[in-house]
Design a protein around this nucleic acid. Structure first.
Lengths: 115, 115
DNA sequence: CAGTATCCAAATAGATACTG
DNA sequence: CAGTATCTATTTGGATACTG
């Protein structure tokens, strides 16, 4: 037992960062959005929508706002007519690359493919 | 554009494994459970509950069943009186270690601590 | 093109009480 | 000790229609 009453293993300060991370990355489309932007450098709203597939305007919009609030992506408005908006990863977002790739590889070797 | 109609970036086969992984690991307590079991080798139901904190019996029970179905943990019944049950990671579950740790470190350096 | 606004459905999680 | 059974609450996600 530690000085502050833990029995062993992961202490409270070890669990909280993981919880913070999964609060963001646990949403259905967020990891896919990161993955998509990792591969593409910069994409517009409808480009993302087409690449991901199956996501509604509303959910995509909310998801992008979430990731923006968390500091993982940046939204850049390009003043043309009609207006374009480019989404890209921040350095923080880009640093998720090994994690996303690790997850992908782990999944391929350990999770059964439904098809 | 590729032979099967993709414009670029992540193709359909690149997104699906990630989606499979996040379908499991996107549940609120699952990553915390993995993290806890990574640190402990083997734990009983109430031990896990105490270590995690804030999870109800029902949700813990369901979460453990999920992870078991996915092949990430094993449930071993120890015939004593009263009955004990030990939960531990399978090799597949244990291979999530670098990913969980990566997420933890990423969170510590890039996500604001609420406290 | 890039979204909002509504409304609705489904999935998840939590509280509480009880059991082998 | 290790759960299950209920019932409720909250959170997410989705369909559709409309807008600057």
């Amino acid at each position: 037992m530690t000085a502050n009453g833990e029995t062993a293993g992961v202490d409270a300060d070890g669990r909280r960062p993981l919880r913070r991370a999964t609060t963001i990355l646990g949403k259905k489309w967020h990891p896919l959005l990161i993955q998509t932007l990792l591969a593409e450098e910069s994409l517009g709203f409808n480009d993302i929508k087409a690449e991901i597939g199956g996501i509604s305007d509303k959910v995509l919009s909310e998801s992008l706002a979430d990731l923006q609030d968390a500091g993982l992506i940046v939204r850049e408005i390009v003043e043309e007519q009609p207006v374009r908006v480019n989404y890209s990863l921040t350095p923080a977002g880009r640093e998720l690359e090994p994690i996303i790739e690790g997850l992908e590889r782990w999944s391929q070797t350990h999770l059964a493919d439904a098809s």
